[in-house]
Design a protein around this nucleic acid. Sequence first.
DNA 1: CATCATTACTTAGATGTTCTAGGTAACACT
DNA 2: AGTGTTACCTAGAACATCTAAGTAATGATG
Lengths: 111, 111
Amino acid sequence: MARPGADLLQGTLETLVLKTLTWGPRHGYAIARWLEGTTEDALVIEEGSLYPALYRMERKGWIEAEWGMSELGRRAKFYQLTGAGRARLKDEVAAWRRFSGAVGRVLEARG
Amino acid sequence: MARPGADLLQGTLETLVLKTLTWGPRHGYAIARWLEGTTEDALVIEEGSLYPALYRMERKGWIEAEWGMSELGRRAKFYQLTGAGRARLKDEVAAWRRFSGAVGRVLEARG
DNA sequence: CATCATTACTTAGATGTTCTAGGTAACACT
DNA sequence: AGTGTTACCTAGAACATCTAAGTAATGATG
């Protein structure tokens, strides 16, 4: 929303990351680039938001990390979904649909 | 009445309030009830969120306040949109569409 | 070969909105 | 007298995101 200091709405980043990981393990930098590419830069993923989010999600048991090599031969930390992460994603997608549907109905309403 | 676990995403409340005021002046309590009713309680407006938001928006020149009498004969502060508020609403609706569209495309994507 | 851009991760601190959890006050109904 | 509703107010906490630094290795450029 056009709000100074925040391009992403709070709470959406973790959902987006979980969804990205449904296609298999990815490292943080790749997650950011994939989201930006897929949305044609409608979403911009700041690294200062992404990496702390990944730590939170790991701490909560939704994802697991493992060091490895990126496609370009650099060291990178690969994340993959856990069972809890998959369950969480399902809940968050449902919550998003409910919420965005409600906001949409308000904003599209015509008096 | 307010159900637990129905949180607003940061940045959406001001947009919702602006939209509510396009139907004409309303007081804070009525704004909250109208939003909850319209969305069948999918959105719950906490008073501790609403009133500070109204002050912020007044300070930013998007809305103007005036004391009056509610339909039930109680004193109430009525808010109405300013020109700047109308312009702001237009921008925020466009931003919401862009953002929610992007999130939706990610979440509905199938690998 | 010196420099700059890119890849990839890290982290401290600032920012700003929302929620929690109280509070005031007037009125209606029992 | 007590409870519920209307209507507003506010301090403080919680929390995610952003800003703005930084490290380090690789690739490209001139």
